[in-house]
Every structure is written in structure tokens, then in C-alpha cells.
Computed example of a mutant assay.
Amino acid sequence: MTAFTAFLAVATHRSFRSAAAELNITPSAISHAIKALEQRLGARLFNRTTRSVSLSDAGERLAEKLRPAMASIEEALQSVDAGADVPRGTIRINASEGAIRLVLKPVMARFLQLYPQVHLDIVSDGRLDDIVSNGFDAGIRLAEAVPRDMVAVAVTAAMRFAVVASPEYLRARTRPMRPLDLHQHDCIRFRFESGAIYRWEFERQGTTERVNVSGPMTLTDQPLMVDAAMEGIGIAFVPEHLAAQPLADGRLLRLLEDWCPEFPGLALYYPGHRYVPPGLKALISLIRTEAPGAPFAGEAGAVRRC
């Protein structure tokens, strides 16, 4: 372990204990390495309290410069091993919780059985961080949101959203016939990690409608939105696969279906100019053959979303 490796681990996790666990060393060893580096540089790299660890201004500058440099060193070392083509080492992936559940969870155990020399470091984050500057090998997000300078590989089939409500909720109410009718209903809203409230978006035969809905509940978790809809709290607008079972057994009813066309699904993406480690190639291959709803399209570029 180098002091720079320890520094980047703490910078990533914002925790000395978590960084120590990743590097399989003691927290005191991490602390000594950081202290020695700070003395060497003559600058404080972290602001520490009993409850939190954050980067200082000097630490932010060092991390910004160091991450791509360390990534280049790692790529150089991996390229030396590339002849053996044996997946090994750590693969860092940034994805939302929903993408992790849909794409990665179904294959994680199988992948690690097949490739025991690979360590998966998966970070749940819905903020669409810059994967290069933050030291990730790859990310997963909607294909349309992938930056154009990245290589994007489709990892799900096309997707749809569904407007759903329980029979109990609809029993005493008139069903909405078009999106603007939702203003007359209780709706379950979704809040992004940024704090923004999602504005429901619909399209039919070239006509687009966007609705700022209102209602008694706002959530940051889409499966909880499905649960709330089943409880009769209001109407939810969620990815179709999350509501598939309650729609099939009648606990939920679908609304405005003709206003919810398909759109390109999720893509795993990575920098096109970088060496792609065998472990990441193997993971992509497994996702595309074994994950539920896997596509079988080629690479996907940035595409539009209704």
C-alpha cells in the first residue's frame, strides 16, 4: 500500500475505517499513512470530526490530480497482465440503486464464483457522477444520459414507465384520460438525490405532456412508491418492471398506457480511450447473457427519452 493509495481510499469512502476495510489493513495503518503524507506535503488533506471525514481544499486538489494519474498506472499494470487475459483485480462501478437491483444483483454471485480473483466495488449513487474523475471503471445509467465521449453497451431491453393505482383508490374516482387529468388526483411524487422533484413526462403520437403532479407523499425510492400505490395512497409513475407482479395479480391497475411508449433502457458505459480490463469485459458478457430482460443489441449511444 502506498500513501497515495490510502489517501484515495479515504477520499472515496470519506471514512478511515471503510478505507481500511477496502485495503485489508488496520485503520491505524491508514491514519499513519495519511499523517505521514500530510507532513510530507505540509498541508492538511482531510477535515476530521468524531462523526465525519471530508476533504480539505488541498485534499480536493490532490484527489482531482491524483485519480487520473493512479488510474493510468493501474491501466499500465493491467495491460502487462493482459496477455494472460485472466480477470483479476478490483472493478469499481457507479450506478443508481435501481440499476444495481435490476442489472448487477442478478449476476453478482455467479460472476464472483466464475472469477474469484476479481473484487467488485459497487457504489450506489443517483447523482450521475463523472466516473473518470471519481476513479470508477464503469457506470450504469439510462442510455440517453450516457456522455457522448463514452462507450455504452446496452444491458437491458427497452423499458417503459407505468402509471398505476390500486382498485381501492380508483373506486371512488374518475380515471384520468390524459396526463393533464392527473392534476385532479393524489399522486406519489419522486425526489432525485439532487433534491429536485421529478416532473412526469408523457408522449403519444408526437404529442408530449409534462405534468408537475401533487399529492400526499414524496419518496426517493421507487419500490416504495409501488407499495404506497398498493396501499391506496395515490397514483404512482414508476418503471414498468417494478409494478409487473401487482399489475399481473390485480393489486394495481394501469392507467394512461397509450401515453407511455418504450424508451431505450440502461447502458453500462466506460471511457473509450482507456484499456478495458478483462474483469470488466467478463462482467459485461455475463450481464448480457444472464441478467433478466437482457437485450441483444450492440453498443448503444446517447438516445432520446420521452
Results as ranks from 00 to 15, higher is better:
residue 118 V to R: 01
residue 76 A to Q: 14
residue 109 A to M: 04
residue 117 Q to W: 07
residue 97 E to V: 07
residue 88 R to W: 09
residue 127 R to W: 04
residue 82 A to Q: 11
residue 98 G to A: 09
residue 119 H to L: 07
residue 100 I to W: 02
residue 92 R to V: 03
residue 116 P to R: 10
residue 98 G to F: 01
residue 100 I to K: 06
residue 109 A to D: 12
residue 83 G to F: 10
residue 109 A to N: 05
residue 101 R to P: 00
residue 74 E to V: 07
residue 117 Q to S: 13
residue 90 T to S: 09
residue 93 I to W: 02
residue 117 Q to R: 14
residue 111 F to S: 11
residue 107 V to F: 07
residue 114 L to F: 02
residue 104 L to R: 04
residue 80 V to L: 15
residue 92 R to T: 11
residue 93 I to P: 07
residue 107 V to N: 04
residue 109 A to H: 06
residue 127 R to T: 14
residue 119 H to E: 05
residue 116 P to F: 09
residue 95 A to D: 03
residue 96 S to A: 13
residue 87 P to H: 09
residue 110 R to Q: 12
residue 74 E to A: 15
residue 91 I to Y: 08
residue 84 A to F: 14
residue 104 L to Y: 01
residue 123 V to S: 04
residue 93 I to F: 00
residue 125 D to P: 02
residue 84 A to N: 13
residue 101 R to N: 11
residue 104 L to C: 05
residue 93 I to V: 12
residue 123 V to M: 00
residue 88 R to E: 11
residue 79 S to H: 12
residue 126 G to S: 07
residue 103 V to Y: 08
residue 80 V to K: 14
residue 105 K to W: 06
residue 103 V to T: 12
residue 121 D to K: 05
residue 114 L to M: 13
residue 97 E to H: 09
residue 125 D to A: 10
residue 81 D to A: 15
residue 112 L to K: 10
residue 108 M to S: 08
residue 99 A to M: 01
residue 84 A to Y: 13
residue 103 V to P: 05
residue 85 D to R: 08
residue 78 Q to I: 08
residue 97 E to D: 06
residue 114 L to N: 11
residue 124 S to C: 06
residue 85 D to M: 09
residue 100 I to F: 05
residue 117 Q to G: 11
residue 116 P to Q: 07
residue 93 I to S: 05
residue 119 H to S: 09
residue 87 P to T: 07
residue 104 L to K: 03
residue 83 G to W: 08
residue 105 K to Y: 08
residue 126 G to F: 03
residue 89 G to D: 05
residue 100 I to N: 06
residue 127 R to K: 12
residue 77 L to A: 14
residue 79 S to N: 11
residue 95 A to M: 13
residue 75 E to P: 01
residue 76 A to G: 15
residue 74 E to S: 14
residue 86 V to A: 12
residue 103 V to S: 10
residue 74 E to Q: 13
residue 89 G to V: 06
residue 119 H to C: 01
residue 106 P to L: 00
residue 85 D to A: 12
residue 83 G to A: 10
residue 124 S to R: 10
residue 99 A to D: 07
residue 121 D to Q: 04
residue 106 P to H: 03
residue 77 L to T: 12
residue 107 V to E: 00
residue 117 Q to E: 14
residue 125 D to V: 06
residue 127 R to S: 15
residue 126 G to M: 03
residue 101 R to E: 14
residue 109 A to F: 01
residue 126 G to Y: 01
residue 81 D to Q: 15
residue 102 L to V: 09
